[in-house]
Design a protein around this nucleic acid. Structure first.
Lengths: 200, 200
DNA sequence: CTTGAAGTATACCGACCAGTCTAGTACTAT
DNA sequence: ATAGTACTAGACTGGTCGGTATACTTCAAG
C-alpha cells in the first residue's frame, strides 16, 4: 500500500529532523504529528510508543549515514588513512549545512541520544550503541587496511578504531558547544594521529 | 545567615546529582524539591527559573571538578604528559564510582548539557562552553609545558589541547553508550598521542 | 454486496510541567 | 517593641505530556 508507507515514512522523517535539531525529550508526539500533518491516531497505529519511534529514528539515521557520508568516505578506492580524512570532511560539511539550515549545530544524532537518554532508557541506549558500533566498524576496516599496507605500524586495531570514533564524537560535541562547524575542520584531521598500542 | 546558604546549597547539590545521573529536561523542579525536602516557595526564592538553576549547577560542577580531579591530575609536580594520564585515571575512577552508585555511567556533566540543551537554550550552551574551556585550559598548560621541555615537538598548542579535551569527551560518551567505565581506561591514555600540527 | 482489516480523526485521560500567589514564620536592625 | 526583610509553605494555574478510546473512512478480497 502506498498510503501506509507514506505516512509512516513521513512521521519518521519529521521526527528524525526534530529529534536531531532539538532533542528527544523536548519534542512531543503532538508536535511531531502537527508538523507531519498526521493525526495522533495514525501515529499510534504505526508506532506503539515514543520509545519505539526513537529506536526507528536511530535505525534510519544509521542506514542513511552509512549510505551517504560513510559510503562516500570509506570507499576502498582511497588509501586507508585518507578515508578518515574524507570522513572528517563529510562530517564537517554535514554539520555546517545543518547549522546553516537550523541556526544551531545539531551534533551527532547518536551521541545526542546517548547523552540524553542512556541513563534513563536502556533500550534506546543499546540501540544507539549499536548504531555507533555499526559506523565505527568502517573505521576499524580502514585501520586494519592501513596496518596491512604498512601505512600504520602494528597497534591495537579494535581499540584504535574505537578511539578514533570517540575522538570524532568529541570534536562534534565541542563544535556543538561553540556552535561552530569550523572546529571540526580544524581539529578533525588529527584523528589520524591517534594510536592505541597493542596491549602486552 | 546559616539557613539561607544551607537551603540554597542543598538545592544545588540535589539538582547537580539528579541532572548528572538523569538529565536536565527529564528532572522536574518538583522532583528536586521533594528530594531536597524543600518547598517550591523556597526554590523560587533562590532560583528565578530552572535555567538559572542549570547555570548554577554547571558553575558548581566546574568549581568542584577543578578543585578535585583537575587539581590532583594537573599538579605541576608531575611531568606535563604524565598529568594527562593522571587526568584520564581520575576520570576513570570518577565515572566508575558514579556508575557503581547509580547503576548507570553518567558521562561528563558538561557534555550532557551540551548535547541536550545546546540547540535549545543559548544561555546554557554558553555556560557549558565556558566550563569546557575552563577545564581544557589546564590541558593547554600541560601541552605548552611539554613543548617547552621538549617532551613534545612543536605543534599547535591551543588546537592540540582542544583536541585532547574533545577526545576525552568522546571517550566518556562511548563509555556512557556502553555503560562501561573500563573503556575509559582502555582508550583514555591514547590522549597523549594526539597532535594537531602548526598551521602554516 | 458484504465483511473485515488498515488506516485516520479527535475527544479525552490522569500525570506532570514550570512557574505564580498568598499567607505565613523567623530573624534582624532600629 | 516594631518594622521590615529573608525565607518557607503549599495550593493553584494554564498548559503539555504520553497514551487511550471510540468512531469513522477507505479499500481490497471473497
Amino acid at each position: 500500500m502506498n498510503r501506509t508507507s507514506d505516512t509512516r515514512q513521513h512521521i519518521l522523517d519529521t521526527a528524525a529532523t526534530l529529534f536531531h535539531t532539538q532533542s528527544f525529550s523536548d519534542v512531543g508526539i503532538a508536535t511531531i504529528c502537527k508538523q507531519a500533518d498526521v493525526s495522533k491516531g495514525s501515529f499510534f497505529h504505526f508506532f506503539p510508543s515514543k520509545q519505539a519511534l526513537g529506536v526507528a529514528v536511530l535505525e534510519q539515521f544509521r542506514e542513511k549515514i552509512n549510505e551517504t557520508l560513510v559510503a562516500r568516505a570509506f570507499s576502498s578506492q582511497y588509501p586507508p588513512m585518507e578515508r578518515l580524512l574524507r570522513f572528517v570532511e563529510e562530517l564537517y560539511m554535514f554539520q555546517r549545512e545543518q547549522a546553516k539550515e537550523h541556526g544551531h549545530l545539531p551534533g551527532c544524532p547518536f551521541g545526542n541520544i546517548v547523552m540524553e537518554q542512556a541513563t534513563q532508557d536502556e533500550i534506546l541506549r543499546k540501540k544507539a550503541d549499536g548504531c555507533i558500533r555499526s559506523i565505527a566498524n568502517h573505521i576499524r576496516t580502514a585501520v586494519s587496511d592501513a596496518v596491512q599496507s604498512g601505512e600504520l605500524a602494528p597497534l591495537d586495531e579494535e581499540a584504535t578504531a574505537e578511539a578514533m570514533f570517540g575522538y570524532l564524537e568529541g570534536v562534534q560535541l565541542m563544535a556543538k558547544a561553540r556552535n561552530d562547524a569550523e572546529l571540526i575542520r580544524r581539529l578533525g584531521p588529527a584523528v589520524a594521529t591517534i594510536r592505541v598500542p597493542q596491549q602486552t
